Simulated scan of single mutants.
Amino acid sequence: MFTVRTPRVVAARRLHRRRDRDETGRFLAEGPQAVREAFRAGVVTELFATADAAARHPEWSASLVDDAAMEALADTVQPQGLVAVCRQRDVPLEQALARKPRLVAVCVDIRDPGNAGTVLRTADAAGAKTVIFAGDTVDPYNGKAVRSSAGSLFHVDIVRARDTAATIATLQAAGLQVLAADGYGKSDLFDLSDLHRPTAWLFGSEAHGLPRDLAVDLRVRVPLYGGAESLNLAAAAAVCLYSSAKAMRSVE
């Protein structure tokens, strides 16, 4: 049985650090749901499990670890006994666009991993096939982001692009309208008549929003009918993406 000092456990533990994830192209997925989706996606390179967890999931072959090793591998207070080492799923933007996605979510300078994972989950649920992490955005393979995605990380094309302006230009050249979710936008989401068109939605951080100099097609606000000052990022993303999804389904 592996311990915290076993070299393979030591190497996997390093993946809690972004630097090591970037250098190795690997990340950790924790818990039965994430592990199941990772196996379906064909990206698992090694699975660690406690004896109890391995007995509960005999369908998977795992390296057995003791409780101390599992606590070191896991990123949660109460580990579920399963941690998989997975290959990262990045694809170049051009490759993702070659699949002609009709709905794309773009996270711009989002720093909170929980928000990043929730946008991934929401985009997947709304039928978006591509999620782009642009600019100075949190690592989508951060442990909290992976958990917050609830398996959706393994369902969509993941694109990472440092240059947000160039990313927008590439999306527009591919025929997508680029809409920025902006609480102060001049266009009301529910007044738009062309959400059936292929669309990329941009979402910025809750603290700073989107840069003002981005060459988007429209800045769109979600109307507020009550006394709330604003919607949080996850709620705004859900409203925008599902509005597009509904419009697209109406013309199929």
Rank of each mutant, 00 (worst) to 15 (best):
V4Y: 00
R5P: 00
A11S: 11
R19E: 15
D20R: 13
D20Q: 14
A29M: 10
G31Y: 03
V35L: 13
R40G: 08
E46F: 01
L47D: 05
A51M: 01
A51C: 03
A55T: 13
E59W: 02
A62I: 03
L64I: 14
L64C: 09
V65D: 03
D67S: 13
A68F: 00
A69G: 07
A69Y: 00
A74D: 03
D75L: 01
D75W: 01
D75K: 03
T76E: 12
Q78D: 14
G81N: 08
V85S: 01
C86G: 03
E94Q: 10
A96D: 01
P101M: 04
C107N: 14
V108W: 10
I110R: 03
A116M: 13
L120H: 01
L120Q: 03
A125T: 11
G127S: 06
A128V: 06
F133V: 07
D139S: 01
D139R: 12
N142P: 01
R147F: 08
F154Q: 02
V159Q: 07
R160H: 14
D163K: 07
T164N: 11
A166M: 05
I168S: 11
L171T: 10
A173S: 14
L176M: 06
L176R: 02
L176P: 08
A180L: 06
D182F: 09
G183I: 10
G185C: 11
G185D: 14
D188H: 07
D188Y: 07
L189G: 00
L189H: 08
L195S: 06
R197Y: 00
G209M: 14
L210W: 07
P211H: 04
L214G: 09
D217R: 06
Y225G: 08
G226M: 04
S230V: 09
N232G: 07
N232I: 04
L233S: 06
A234N: 12
S244E: 01
A247C: 08
A247Y: 04
R249C: 00
